[in-house]
């Protein structure tokens, strides 16, 4: 790994100052489970790494306010899957976060980091899209909200501007009854990156929201009904790579869509 300067700011102001000083060759470090891999491989060669975990007010809490579950940027996958409020309202997110890497990874990896990494295959992205997540972003200029559906721009690219920091993710607590689920396809049964993944939710009106990953340059959100699963999954644009071929991925989306819908309907009825 090539040397870099390491900063561990204690205030947001210091974070923003460091981001400005070292832009554009600066990286934010939270859980580090993706960043460290890229630092080692040399894909990222920053001058500076800003560790945000000890910033005053940096939240590792999951707080419910005004119909929204706010997941702090410091919340790890382990924290997330064990939170009763998440389990109650967002079962597909629990299913997805439970299979992100291994226990050791989930003990470090944050939900915010998973989306900032902007992997097309990120497991938490599909359920977050389905649940209408909104990303709360801060910078020297102030704060803003970015709907997750507008957050991903391409592999590894997000709508975050230079100097911006994700502080939390809002999950609107469903007001109407809905059932939701998550599915993925992997090459082996233990810890693996998704060959493709998918989440869906369905309400009593039969409206289906579905999102899938590793099937397009970004995780895609589509809507339709139980009768239009084929049309919905046909919007994918999968590629062939070492994890799977395009045709297989495309076919698996439909299989996962059916299965996820079946589970979702079961949950809706409960």
């Amino acid at each position: 790994m090539q040397p870099f300067a390491y900063f561990r700011p204690e205030s947001r102001g210091e974070v923003f100052a460091a981001l400005r000083e070292f832009a554009p060759d600066v990286r934010i470090l939270a859980g580090g489970t993706d960043l460290m891999v890229r630092l080692r491989s040399g894909r990222f060669r920053p001058n500076a790494v800003v560790d945000v975990k000890r910033v005053s007010g940096w939240s590792s809490q999951i707080v419910e306010t005004e119909g929204v579950l706010r997941v702090g940027a410091g919340v790890t996958m382990t924290d997330l899957v064990s939170a009763p409020s998440v389990q109650q309202h967002f079962p597909a997110l629990v299913e997805a976060a439970s299979v992100v890497g291994s226990v050791q990874i989930r003990n470090r990896a944050t939900l915010a980091g998973n989306i900032c990494n902007a992997s097309p295959a990120a497991d938490t992205a599909p359920p977050l899209l389905v649940y209408g997540a909104v990303v709360n972003v801060a910078s020297r200029a102030g704060e803003r909200q970015i709907p997750l559906s507008e957050f991903f721009l391409g592999p590894g690219r997000t709508a975050l501007a230079a100097g911006e920091l994700v502080e939390s993710i809002d999950l609107p607590i469903p007001v109407e009854a809905a059932g939701s689920a998550f599915q993925r396809i992997t090459r082996r049964r233990g810890v693996d990156l998704a060959t493709a993944n998918l989440s869906c939710s369905v309400n009593r009106a039969g409206e289906v929201r579905m999102a899938f990953g590793a099937a397009a340059p970004i995780p895609l959100l589509v809507t339709g009904t139980a009768a239009s699963l084929e049309e919905m999954t046909a919007q994918a644009r999968p590629i062939s790579d070492v994890r799977g071929g395009a045709a297989y991925r495309q076919a698996m989306l439909l299989v996962m869509a059916r299965r996820a819908l079946e589970v979702s309907l079961g949950r809706l009825r409960q």
Binding site: R187, R188, R189, G190, V191, D192, L193
Partner: peptide, 11 residues
């Protein structure tokens, strides 16, 4: 190790 897969304990 990321993309050369060997059996894990779950396999």
């Amino acid at each position: 190790a990321l993309d050369y897969r060997i059996p894990t304990i779950e396999d």
